[in-house]
Nucleic acid binder design. Structure first.
Lengths: 262, 262
DNA sequence: TCACTTGGCGAACGCTGTTCATTAAGATAT
DNA sequence: ATATCTTAATGAACAGCGTTCGCCAAGTGA
């Protein structure tokens, strides 16, 4: 489009002469062959555009300009494709060297990174919830988590559970985040098209709803109405995470009674 | 069935005489009309028999001896049906009066009860994860949870998060429990039919797999192999729950420095 | 030039959720 | 007793789904 008019001529429609050779092999000069990674990439495009419910093999094929059955040469089933997407989400995730003194920060970093990755694609938490990280590619991540717990000094039976607990928390939290967005998007599609309700607006409605509940039946829900649904879920995420970290810390052997340093 | 032979005669097959009135109204004495609750009940039967993936409107209709479209007179969509099932799961759930001194036991009871209900129907955790308890029927449950937190003395911003945290934990835990069972069932169906692999056998395999990992790459996973997958998930559930409870307890205002009681 | 492997195509199967015009039956009103 | 209205369920249809299978065209090595 920019520096055109070079020596490569613009692709012409095939003349009636060369009807034998179909046009495509000229229009797409060296047609990129399909591959596992190309299928997975297309699946992510479809996922982000249409959500998990709109992610069908046919849509992925259409995204690649290819028929459905072609996909099955590179992916054995839709479940397989979803697992590949799940795995792919965590490539290049850097795993910290466990540091006894900084285990809480390390876990915070870890949790926030996972959440960020889950948020980077629509409905990813739903996919994540349906899988267990006991595959060859993800075992190092599990090991890294366990390493943090154990070098921090947590008892083994706590360490064995803590990984699950934190993973479950992250997945569940992001899943719920996504549900808010989906719900808002659904309202937007069905409701008045002017002034898109956004996600924030719905939170406000929910807040008002809680605050309007009968005082004698719902005193606590009313009192917490402002805190149950906040603008930034980042804070809420950190709070829940902190509760877990404090619970874990309570299993640490008592530190040698230290001089009151600060 | 028990005290029969009363004055109500046993239903006879219709004589050829009364062919006008079709047989069904006599064979099925007063044909039970379809209703919301009957549809939901049938859905539970199908769910337990075939799992969530096998739960289709057609199957539910077949279970009732009725056509698919008949269901839509009582249920507006499949999503609606699933929500009704989710709601139904918690009818009759008794909500404790908050007791400042016993808040931890109360939460343990609560969590275990919820888990028991989720386990009472196949794949129920998957359904539960897809819903938020902010419907009219379930608001009292949310309120009861918040009541426990607040009368225990937890700060408001912690209380607001704690409900989510615990619910997420329960759902996630039971979801994973179900995935083990499903995976085992799948292996059973496809593999050797003799000596059904059971769920326990697979746990053993997993344990061996962890223990067989290369020592230098996976020291911690190896060390914890015996604890990651245990026979009774009850213990694992309680451990994770305890971590959360301890974390919550850490936000309690310092108790008046008490005499060293025990 | 021939045989062969490969990658993609297109049609088909059986299933899904949902809608709609139609029918059978019961209740109500004339 | 007859006619009307309401209700409940029917059965066919639509569009889409995951998956499989037979087929064809292109490219490769002998």
């Amino acid at each position: 489009m920019s520096d055109a008019a070079s020596d490569t001529p613009a692709p012409l429609p095939p003349s009636p002469w060369e009807r034998g050779r179909p046009a495509r092999s000229r229009v797409t000069p060296a047609r990129v062959p399909l591959s596992r990674v190309r299928v997975v990439e297309a699946a992510f495009v479809v996922l982000d555009r249409q959500g998990l419910d709109g992610l069908s093999m046919r849509q992925v094929a259409a995204e690649l300009g290819v028929t459905v059955s072609a996909l099955y040469a590179h992916v054995s089933s839709k479940a397989d494709l979803l697992e590949l997407m799940y795995t792919r989400l965590f490539v290049g995730f850097d795993l910290p060297e466990p540091d006894r003194e900084r285990w809480q920060e390390q876990l915070r970093d870890f949790a926030r990174s996972v959440r960020r990755r889950l948020l980077s694609h629509r409905d990813m938490a739903r996919i994540s919830m349906a899988h267990v990280p006991f595959t060859a590619e993800l075992l190092p991540h599990v090991e890294a988590l366990l390493a943090i717990f154990r070098t921090a000094g947590l008892p083994d039976r706590i360490s064995a559970e803590a990984g699950d607990l934190i993973s479950t928390y992250i997945n569940g939290f992001v899943l719920e985040e996504g549900m808010w967005q989906d719900r808002a998007a659904a309202d937007e599609a069905g409701g008045s098209s002017l002034a898109r309700p956004d996600w924030r607006e719905m939170a406000g409605e929910m807040q008002n709803y809680f605050a309007s509940l009968p005082e004698e039946d719902y005193p606590h829900l009313r009192a917490l109405s402002g805190l149950m649904v906040t603008d930034s879920s980042d804070d809420r995420f950190d709070i829940g995470l902190e509760i877990i970290l404090r619970g874990l810390a309570s299993y640490l052997p008592d530190p040698a009674p230290s001089p009151p340093s600060q």
